[in-house]
Amino acid sequence: MTLSILDLAPIPSGGTASDALNNTIDLARRAEEFGYRRYWLAEHHFAPGVASSAPAVLIALVAAATSRIRVGSGAVQLGHQTPLSVVEQFGIIDALHPGRIDLGIGRSGQRRAELAAAPKGPPPRPREDREDKVVDGLLIPAPLDLSTLAIHPQLVHYATFLQQPGAQTPDFAEQIDDVLAFINGTHEVHAVPGEGADLEVWILGSSGGQSARVAGERGLPFAANYHVSPSNVLEAVEAYREAFKPSDELSEPYVMVSADAVVAPTEAAARELASPYALWVRSIRTGAGAMRFATPAEAAAHVWTDEDRALVKDRVDTQFVGTPGQVAERLRTLRRVTGADELLVTTITHDHEDRVRSYELLAEAWNHQ
């Protein structure tokens, strides 16, 4: 199947990290039954409502609890650790679950440092000066400048806990070359386990910047984030394809695109389940970190300002919410417009069984397209 899952191990309001992690194991087993192709775990830190802070650990647990589905990271943030440590971690997992592990890598640390050092230009234009557009049926929302969030004083302070004092993040391209060299056994030192591991290496990106270019130039598969940065998805996949050079791994570009989705038997029920999503996105974009996912009733009690609504509009408008047929059709549009080979779906609801049921209904609809 050309659908895969991205899981953040979300913690619901009233729940605990233990609840979230047990839910992740259960969902992974069910996803394998439903026929999903991959099960990826995200990396998030300092978020009260997300338990996926150590993807390699979670991947090992999920791989041990399943038998066929590919398991991987979406993504390991390479700015927080060395290429050697990443390859060794994933090499250990591959040694126990050979041929099933994906090493998805994201660019971080370096990007934050660049933003902090950049000269401060004029403030971004107000959102109302920009326009949403629809490309062949796919909504591409107006871009929202979130660069100030990346250098939010609180987040910059938190980031110091992810690296040793004085550590500097190397250039992303150099880091990727080191990862590939460790795996291929062409580095001057050996990663054991890791060298010769049957890992599928992916690059994840939210724009047409360095991540997309590095993925293309190294001939690696690329995952573009429509669910995080929907305004940049076409730019990202275009930049990747333009930069692509055939490699031993791929003879032509291979793209996966992510999407947020909530599915229920009726559209009204799906919208009710998805109603806390806007509040959850707001918690991320205000710098507080992802909150515990609220119930619909809790979310309904929030008093929204115009500024709040503008802050989350692009994410809310591009979340695919509805019946199985409605969501499957919108995902087909996303795949057609982006030319994606696979789609990576992330679903968050307050109740675990609603999330499991959403993925089950979507798989049924997708398999009968």
Rank of each mutant, 00 (worst) to 15 (best):
L8W: 10
P10N: 04
P10T: 03
P10D: 04
I11D: 00
G15D: 06
G15Q: 08
A17S: 15
A17Q: 12
S18K: 11
S18F: 15
D19T: 10
D19F: 13
D19W: 15
N22L: 15
N23S: 13
A28P: 02
R29V: 11
R30K: 14
A31H: 01
A31I: 03
E32W: 05
E33R: 14
E33Q: 15
F34H: 03
E43S: 07
E43T: 07
E43I: 07
H44F: 13
H44Q: 11
H44D: 07
H45E: 10
H45Y: 11
F46S: 08
F46G: 06
G49Y: 02
A51K: 01
S52F: 07
S52I: 06
P55V: 04
A56P: 05
V57L: 15
L58V: 05
A60S: 15
A60F: 14
A60V: 10
L61V: 11
A63P: 03
A63W: 02
A65L: 07
A65P: 07
T66R: 05
I69C: 02
G72E: 00
G72M: 00
G74L: 03
G74R: 00
A75G: 11
A75Y: 04
V76R: 02
V76Y: 04
Q77W: 06
G79C: 12
G79D: 06
H80W: 14
E88C: 11
E88H: 10
G91Y: 01
I92P: 05
I92F: 15
I93V: 15
I93R: 01
D94Y: 00
A95W: 04
H97C: 05
P98S: 13
I101D: 00
L103C: 10
L103E: 03
G106C: 07
G106E: 02
R107T: 08
S108N: 12
S108E: 08
G109Q: 02
R111A: 14
R112T: 14
R112P: 07
R112A: 14
A113M: 09
L115P: 04
L115A: 09
L115S: 06
K120R: 13
G121F: 03
P122E: 14
R125S: 12
R125H: 08
R127E: 13
